[in-house]
Amino acid sequence: MELWNAIILNPVLNGLIALSSILSNNFGLAIIALTIIVRLIILPLTLKQLNSTKAMQGMQPKIQELQKKYGKNQQKLQQEMMKVYKEAGVNPLGCLWPMVVQFPVWIALYQSIMRALATTPESLLDLSQHLYSWQAVSQAFPLSSHFLWLNLGGQGDLILAIIVGATMWVQQKMTTAPSPDPRQQSMNSMMQLMMPLMFGMFVLMFPGGLGLFWAASNVIGIVIQYFIGGGWGYLRSRSSAPTTPAVASKRASQKGS
């Protein structure tokens, strides 16, 4: 716990409070600014993820060929697909790292927001033990928990939940390549729906400040994806998932009957 506080929590907490002081004691703006900083720090990982996604997109014809060849032998198909990924230097797990790296920051931010806003006298008392003796930090107090219509220390804002859910859906839709495997595609579609719903639910449960961080992070992700990833990506393709011959013939027979 001490190590966590010293290495992650205290720097995030003091950085957030100092940012608030710099930004006219606006805690909401401080959260957005911190989000931008975090996203800039993990930008190399994000770029790696985008390149990985692009590479996987370029490999689609090869994957389709494998589908045709090993359609009936799923085990062999998986093996061959992994071989192709390996040859192309693509790690299917690579797309998760930016999210994994952000987890400690999310947790630290959650703790920082709750600590900084000090909703109970105990929290305010505890806060003093985590503060650096920076002038910018001491001048930031008291922190206002209000930003736009939001109570950053309070729970459950429906509008923010919708914004977080919608922006997360857009971001996922832009980056998730359609899968040639119908089962995989169905799983992807489910995840694309489940994740925004879950995060929307989290926003309703957690302090508004954390929801603001998620919303800002999603919007920044969309902007990065748009400018570096080349436009709206898969968001504009309606149903571009390539189908296996078996599925295609099944669909054709269904149409005919």
């Binding site: 959650y110 703790q111 600590r115 000090a118 909703t119 109970t120 505890d126 220390g153 989290f202 957690f206």
Partner: peptide, 12 residues
Amino acid sequence: LTSCVPGGGTQP
């Protein structure tokens, strides 16, 4: 995030 970890969030 959701657990009652001491110091996880606000103090009761």
